[in-house]
Design a binder for these strands. Structure first.
Length: 798
DNA sequence: GGTTGGATCCAA
DNA sequence: TGGATCCAACCT
């Protein structure tokens, strides 16, 4: 038997199956979808079996055998293997990247370089022997001091270099103690009278004969230590076994089971449409204003799917920010739910994934990669907040969860629901064309009015001499809420407020020496870091340009606002939520629940808090500057602004108390701002579509962004230039090629970056042409040190 | 991506 | 001529 293996080497020439012989001993076990260790060149790498076959085109004498099977049960099923190939074509990525992204990180390989003893210990130099006494190898990282000695031994061949493949996290095992069920046997065991601990434990055993208990639990209950347990195990009073167990990610809130809510008329209509299509591969766009009760529809549709004995995937943009969603799912479906989000450790994610693989759960709630949940019998896929850009992975494989969802829906003959208050223009346009079925919820479920949104012209404020970041109206409103003991949420758009370090005398902003970007100030370590290449240095005492000592660093934007806020309302209790305060595990939940319990008056943060904030006492929302996202050089700037404002406004007045929103802007007349005020999606859609049509962007055109990098500016410019000429001569005349031009950040890590844009409506030769580009890259540019990256349907073109 | 081995250049 | 160093080829 021969196995086709996709090897864990992400490089253009390796991006194809390699044939391996399957050793006789494991021939019965080997299956497609299993991970294997294989020799590759003169090292060993991990790979995935993608196919089994009888014969190979490759010279059988040169065929190497698989070194080791890493799985007993395949980690990828037939569907996912097929999907990986499709994904490779769609996103122009390496097949290995597609395969790896489908598997939990814990199952991806960790490579460790080490030196292995290849002769009797006595034959190597005396000073080295102590290193090899315990183990026949030493890890590279532990061997820095003895490197020259090792090198000599390697020349003799007594020590060889090797790479070891390790699995990161394994199955968690717990020690179970099985107490003997025979009282007579227990009573017959002799224990010395002075062994007080053992006597105490035996007493416990007699009272609990026949019970199986986790050893840590036993230590607590019987108040004894582990050695005591072991000594009784030796006397055969109990047996020890290791049992597989799941890590248990603790939720802060107790979950009680809840049943369905009564659907409103509009919800019922939407629900019925989906229910009627449960066994068809249909895509619905559920357009419901904030607070219209989309989640309840999701829950009840999933319930129907479960009744059919099928499974469901529920995607959310970033689940660690939306604990409420997780809680609602657990309330409704209990332990049939697996949760996958970035707040979990690799081991916890692996455990959740295993529950899915073993069909122990029926529903998965998770972020982007949960779309690859290995369910065998999918009945429904939901993407909540479908417009969110986090559904598109921004490095290879650059896939969009929405595309993957639709592919799987066709495979399983099941529907997809795309839900949003502010659908992406692409999805809405498809719904208009009838590709998706549009379902609309126009009213809030509890019939609350929409929040009262005021747009504040900040130019006016400036003219009136108010130079602070709070308008008079907003400041008054904050004080008012403070008096009424109601809560306020303040949003700051992160971009444009990054924390740079500046010389106040000459105006120099500290730049990264490797990239064309300013360094970011990190208060905790008193350093400046480059977020693109990782470069860091201490904040200088004097300016490197003019030697002035007037170095000023701005903390993160939110810190600055917090300081200003203290001047406006010194008595307010403020909670700040940003990258600094949420670094620790579970910090999001803690801050949010603290706010929910009324431990603060004001919650201040970036748009990361916009999602899932659902507290009845929030009656005021302030957007400090709506402009920062609006004027980004990106075709989605207006769309993003509209979405953000709508979402943020929706945080106010979700319960009985009505909500008020202040949106501060220097361009208050912009349609993205004026139309978000009353959640007028349709008019916004029309106007933005007109802009897109005029400028030739999605949904009118599809876009491909191609980026080139090279150490040398001239070389990269030439590469980009040649590519553009190639594209122009090979693609159809209606297709537009924009550029080449230098990227917005023209140099990263000392490499210059150029890009060009393909805009097309219909381009049957696109995939072929991209493959051609890769071929040219491989044969001509790779060896010159250039890189090529292709982003199909990018979320932004900056 | 990582290893190897051959070509090339330099100091003796 | 050893040896350092730089690339191109190859990987089943």
């Amino acid at each position: 038997m021969i196995a086709e293996v996709i090897v864990d080497v992400a490089a253009h020439p390796i991006d194809r199956p390699f044939d391996y012989a399957i050793p006789k001993e494991v021939a019965v076990l080997a299956e497609p979808g299993m991970r294997v260790k294989v020799p590759f060149g003169n090292r060993k790498v991990l790979g995935f079996i993608t196919k089994l076959k009888e014969t190979s085109e490759f010279d059988p004498k040169r065929l190497k055998p698989i070194h080791e099977l890493m799985d007993v049960v395949p980690v990828l099923n037939e569907e996912l293997l097929k999907m990986a190939q499709w994904m490779k074509e769609q996103t122009v990525c390496f097949e290995i990247d597609a395969l790896q992204v489908m598997v939990p990180a814990a199952l991806r390989a960790k490579y460790e370089k080490r030196f292995v003893l290849n002769a009797p210990l006595e034959e190597i130099a005396a000073p080295l022997r102590i290193y090899f006494e315990k183990r026949p190898f030493i890890r590279l990282q532990d061997a820095v001091d003895i490197y020259s000695l090792l090198k000599k031994e390697m020349e003799k061949g007594t020590i060889i270099a090797d790479t070891d493949i390790q699995q990161q996290t394994a199955v968690k095992k717990v020690r179970m103690i099985h107490i003997s069920d025979s009282i007579e046997k227990l009573e017959a065991i002799e224990i010395r009278a002075n062994a007080k601990q053992q006597l105490k434990l035996m007493d416990f055993f007699l009272r609990n004969a026949g019970r199986s208990i986790e050893s840590s639990q036993l230590q607590k209950e019987a108040e004894v230590s582990l050695p005591t347990i072991y000594s009784l195990v030796e006397k055969e009073a109990a047996q020890i076994s290791n049992m597989e167990s799941y890590r248990d990610p603790k939720l802060l809130t107790e979950i009680e089971q809840k049943s369905s809510l009564q659907l409103t008329g509009a919800q019922q209509i939407a629900f019925d449409s989906i229910e009627n299509a449960l066994n068809t591969p249909k895509t619905f766009l559920l357009h419901g204003i904030t607070g219209s009760g989309k989640t309840e529809i999701y829950l009840q549709t999933i319930d129907q799917v479960l009744k059919q004995g099928k499974e469901a995937i529920m995607l959310v943009p970033e689940i660690s920010l939306t604990p409420q969603m997780t809680i609602r799912f657990k309330e409704r479906f209990g332990d049939q739910v697996a949760v996958l989000h970035s707040g979990l450790s690799a081991g916890e994610k692996y455990d959740e994934w295993r529950k899915i693989q073993r069909a122990e759960v029926k529903v998965v709630v998770g972020a982007r990669s949960a779309i690859f949940a290995p369910f065998q019998n999918l009945g429904l896929i939901i993407l909540d907040e479908e417009h969110e850009s986090s559904y598109k992975q921004d490095d290879s494989p650059r896939y969009h969860a929405r595309d993957m969802a639709i592919w799987r829906s066709e495979y399983h003959n099941c529907p997809v629901i795309l839900g949003s208050a502010t659908p992406s223009l692409e999805s809405y346009a498809r719904a208009q064309k009838g590709v998706y079925e549009l379902l609309v919820l126009e009213k809030r479920a509890k019939n609350q009015p929409l929040p009262d949104v005021h747009i504040v012209d900040m130019r006016e404020e400036l003219r009136n001499g108010n130079r602070s970041m709070f308008s008079v109206q907003l400041a008054d409103a904050i004080r008012d809420r403070l008096e009424k003991k109601q809560q306020t949420v303040l949003f700051l758009n992160k971009r444009g407020y990054s924390s740079f370090v500046l010389c106040r005398d000459c105006g120099t902003v500290m730049q990264c020496p490797n990239c064309d970007i300013s360094l970011t100030y990190h208060r905790s370590s008193e350093t400046m870091k480059c977020h693109y290449c990782g470069y860091d240095e201490r904040v200088p005492k004097t300016c490197p340009e003019c030697e002035s000592e007037h170095i000023r660093f701005f903390g993160t934007g939110t810190q600055k606002v917090e300081e200003e806020l203290a001047k406006v309302v010194p008595e307010a209790r403020v909670l700040r939520m940003d990258v600094d305060t949420t670094r620790n595990k579970g910090a999001h939940e803690k801050i949010l629940s603290a706010f929910g319990e009324g431990k603060a008056d004001i919650l201040l943060g970036t748009q990361m808090i916009a999602k899932g904030l659902d507290f009845p006492n929030i009656t005021l929302v302030g957007v400090l500057s709506a402009d920062t996202t609006l004027h980004l050089p990106d075709f989605r700037a207006a769309e993003k602004t509209y979405q953000l404002l709508t979402q943020v406004s929706g945080r106010a007045g979700r319960d009985i108390l009505p909500g008020t929103v202040f949106v501060q802007s220097y361009t208050p007349e912009h349609y993205a701002i004026t139309l978000a005020k009353d959640q007028l999606y349709e008019p916004f859609y029309e106007q933005e579509m007109a802009m897109r049509r005029a400028s030739g962007y999605p949904p009118y055109y599809y876009v491909v962004n191609i980026q080139f990098t090279h150490e040398d500016l001239m070389t990269v410019a030439e590469y980009a230039d040649q590519t553009v000429r190639y594209l122009k001569s090979h693609l159809s005349p209606n297709t537009l090629i924009i550029g080449p031009s230098a990227s917005l950040i023209a140099r990263v890590n000392n490499r210059y970056r150029y890009q060009c844009l393909i805009k097309y409506k219909k381009e049957p030769k696109l995939t072929d042409t991209m493959q051609q580009l890769i071929k040219i890259h491989r044969t001509e540019w790779l060896k010159k040190g250039a890189t090529l990256s292709i982003d199909m349907n990018p979320t932004s073109v900056m």
